[in-house]
């Protein structure tokens, strides 16, 4: 019997995530920059993943699109919001979690979920991109660093206080701190802590989580933010090798139910 594939696509502001889910067994995941065309990024990602796994396009039986670019994917069978998809995906990656903290390229959200990953309540950041992946990118550039270097640099450092969460004002503040001779590691630790504080405040509005949180989205790749979140929330904040693709995994799980 040939394998039937369920496909989940999460077109984020920065990265496009594609996930293949089979009836049984592992998931396959591919991540690429979204670029200027959500549709092209998604199609190129599907082609790359088909090549990598050796499956053929005819084995794709259902496709669910999510993320801000979901509307552009007219070939998808269904679109579902990233909120619902992250809930499903996070519960799949980390069974037993009751909270999802997602920080993507331009937005951030916290979700209360049940065992099945059904969203019970959620909050999303307001109109601006403060404290998101883009914020970290701009700060890293101001420090002459790449985002991938931030976590290591901040390990064990005493965080300096960053007062502004606005990307533009924070950049000015960071440049000022550098001019005062403050160590880069302390500044980065401070940036991580300010992001974590912001997320912890959102979590607080939803009510206290009881078991553990799943940390998803591109910023989940940053261990420094994860450490700060654990300190502030007092519960385990778990990441997974596929944390960045949690939304696409949720979309694939929903697609699988349609087959």
């Amino acid at each position: 019997m040939t394998v039937a594939l369920a496909v989940g696509i999460d077109v984020g502001s920065t990265a496009t995530k594609i996930v293949f889910k089979k009836d049984q067994g592992d998931i396959h995941c591919h991540i690429r920059p979204t670029g200027w065309s959500p549709r092209e990024a998604a199609q190129a990602g599907i082609r790359a993943l088909l090549e990598e796994t050796g499956y053929s396009e005819s084995q794709i039986k259902a496709t669910v699109a999510t993320g801000y670019g979901r509307i552009a994917l007219s070939f998808a069978d269904r679109t579902v919001t990233e909120i619902t998809c992250h809930g499903r995906g996070a519960a799949f990656l980390v069974p037993g979690a009751d909270l999802v903290i997602d920080i993507g390229g331009q937005d951030s959200k916290v979700l209360k979920i049940n065992n099945q990953g059904k969203v019970l309540d959620f909050l999303m950041n307001d109109k601006c991109a403060a404290g998101t992946g883009r914020f970290l990118q701009v700060m890293a550039a101001a420090l002459g660093l790449d985002v991938s270097e931030l976590a290591d640099l901040s390990a064990g450092q005493e965080p300096v206080k960053i007062s502004s969460m606005c990307t533009v004002f924070s950049e000015t503040e960071v440049i000022g701190l550098l001019a005062q001779g403050v160590a880069k590691g302390a500044i980065v630790a401070g940036l991580h802590q300010s992001i974590a504080r912001r997320m912890a405040a959102m979590v607080g509005r939803l009510g206290k989580p009881e078991t553990k949180a799943v940390f998803t989205g591109g910023v989940a790749l940053n261990l420094g933010v994860q450490r700060s979140l654990e300190q502030l929330l007092g519960i385990p904040v778990v990441t997974h090798q596929y944390s960045q693709a949690a939304g696409a995994i949720g979309a694939a799980l929903i697609a699988q139910k349609m087959i």
Partner: peptide, 20 residues
């Protein structure tokens, strides 16, 4: 109308919470 799309995501997700 500047936040229509972010409102749409929230409202859509809220309706999904009810339906799923």
């Amino acid at each position: 109308q500047s936040d229509v799309e972010t409102l749409r995501v929230r409202i859509n997700a809220f309706l999904e919470m009810i339906q799923e």
